[in-house]
Simulated scan of single mutants.
Amino acid sequence: MKENRVVVAMSGGVDSSVAAALLKMQGFDVIGITMKTWGFMEVGGAPKHESGCCSLDAIFDAKNVADKLDFPHYTLDFTKAFENTVIENFVDEYIAGRTPNPCVICNKKIKWEELLKKADSLDAKFVATGHYAVVEFNNETGRYCIKNSADNKKDQTYALWGLSQESLSRTIFPLGNYNKSQVRQLAEEFNLKTAAKPDSQEICFVADNNYERFLRERIPETIEKIGGGDFVYHGKIVGKHRGIPFYTIGQRRGLGVSFGKPVYVKNIDIKKNIVELGDKDELLNSFALASGVNYVSKSILNEGEVVYAKIRYSDKATPAQVVFANQNNLKVKFIEPKSAVTPGQSLVLYDNSGYLLAGGTITSEN
């Protein structure tokens, strides 16, 4: 295995393009790989001009950057693995009344585990991506650590909590010490085609951001079988919902009921087929319980330990206290209650220096 050979996951965007360019400038033997994980024919929702990480435009943009910087580029088909892991989980979670976080699963299972297999076949020691994050090795603990990037607005550590120590030991994040404006400036200096390319905002395989359309097309018989049910507000039936899979905790828009004031999805009861509505203050929770825990910068957390917790990508990390922790489960108490703790999303814990301690999938707010 060649110590200076690195496989770079290239989405066709500016971040992965600059990551590859920086590694090339540092003397690495770079191989670019674009991972085709889905197609508009399979997932629907195609805009008039197809775009996104798996479109032909994205593949051609990645190839253009590789040609410009003079390193080999390949497009590989990962659609079966992506379908069986990311998309199936996405559908199953919504059916179960939870709100999935597909990026976490994709990072762990596809962008690392599958990509590392390909790196092995190419005799490459490392894989690299354009994520805004920092990976370090702690000599005292003997563990690889993930730390917040220099760009707080673009930091992507929240979605990286599932990476194993083995995966991290072979990972390079070239953009960890840059902010977005610096990355775009570097792309211009390198004269890369992707320099001004806009960032992608939506879940990649739901390009139109219409999850209801996606689910209805993907599992029409299941959706019909689930059917609609009751909206309940303070114990009273106040309307009919379209189906459990189409709602998420904290949702305010698109409910189809009018109260003359904002109301929110407070709870989803799949057994009774009820979507419970509440006022904003009723969304506040003091606790969160998570399962499927992966420890990153520490091997275990201790009861009573103070950490900084995030419950969604856009959330601010705020102080919390560890109530319980073992190798599979975590329970924390927020010093200040958080709004809309949502089963299916990730509970991610940091220390006061920005090191990612551990993460897990939220199972309950209690």
Score class of each variant (00 low, 15 high):
Ile362Asn: 02
Met35Arg: 09
Lys68Ser: 14
Ala317Ser: 06
Phe231Asn: 00
Val332Ala: 01
Lys261Ile: 10
Arg253Lys: 13
Met35Thr: 06
Ala133Arg: 05
Leu330Ser: 11
Gly254Lys: 04
Tyr247Phe: 12
Tyr178Ile: 02
Tyr264Trp: 08
Gln26Phe: 13
Ala46Gln: 09
Tyr211His: 15
Trp112Val: 12
Ala62Lys: 05
Ala124Lys: 01
Pro319Arg: 04
Leu255Thr: 05
Phe82Gly: 03
Asp57Leu: 14
Asn326Thr: 04
Gly162Lys: 06
Arg216Tyr: 11
Asn191Thr: 13
Arg253Tyr: 08
Ala66Phe: 04
Lys338Ile: 07
Gly250Val: 07
Ala20Phe: 04
Leu330Lys: 06
Pro102Ala: 01
Ser16Leu: 13
Lys333Met: 14
Ala119Leu: 09
Pro100Tyr: 02
Ala124Gln: 03
Phe71Cys: 13
Ala150Leu: 13
Ala19Val: 07
Asn267Asp: 10
Ala81Cys: 10
Gly278Leu: 08
Val263Leu: 05
Ile87Met: 05
Asp351Phe: 05
Leu168Met: 12
Ile362Glu: 09
Thr222Val: 15
Lys225Gln: 10
Ser299Val: 06
Ala19Leu: 09
Asp70Tyr: 13
Leu116Asp: 13
Gly44His: 00
Ile237Pro: 12
Gly243Gln: 08
Ala358Asn: 00
Asn273Val: 09
Ser121Trp: 09
Leu357Pro: 10
Phe231Cys: 00
Asn139Trp: 08
His234Trp: 11
Val232Met: 01
Lys193Gln: 15
Ala159Trp: 15
Lys118Tyr: 11
Gly254Trp: 07
Asp208Cys: 04
Asp315Cys: 03
Asp279Tyr: 03
Leu168Cys: 09
Asn107Phe: 14
Thr171Ser: 15
Asn107Glu: 10
Leu76Met: 14
Val348Trp: 10
Leu163Thr: 03
Val263Glu: 12
Met35Ser: 12
Glu114Ala: 10
Ala58Asn: 01
Tyr308Val: 05
Phe71Leu: 06
Tyr233Ala: 11
Val14Pro: 04
Tyr211Met: 11
Leu356Cys: 10
Phe214Ser: 07
Val257Ala: 02
Leu163Lys: 00
Thr248Phe: 15
Gln182Cys: 01
Met41Arg: 05
Ser181Met: 13
Leu76His: 10
Val232Phe: 02
Pro337Glu: 11
Leu160Ala: 14
Leu160Phe: 14
Phe60Pro: 10
Cys103Asp: 15
Ala150Met: 07
Ile87Ala: 02
Val293Ser: 03
Ala325Cys: 01
Asn191Cys: 09
Gln327Val: 08
Ser181Thr: 07
Asp57Cys: 03
Gly32Val: 00
Tyr132Phe: 02
Val127Tyr: 01
Ala96Pro: 02
Pro337Val: 07
Tyr144Pro: 15
Asn328Met: 11
Lys109Met: 12
Asp70Gln: 09
Gly278Lys: 01
Phe126Ile: 06
Phe246Val: 10
Gly52Ile: 02
Ala19Glu: 13
Gly239Ala: 12
Ile223Gln: 11
Ser297Pro: 06
Phe231His: 02
Leu284Ala: 11
Ser339Gly: 13
Ile146Ser: 05
Thr248Ala: 14
Gly97Trp: 03
Asn302Gln: 15
Leu330Phe: 07
Leu168Asp: 08
Thr79Pro: 13
Phe324Trp: 09
Asp315Trp: 00
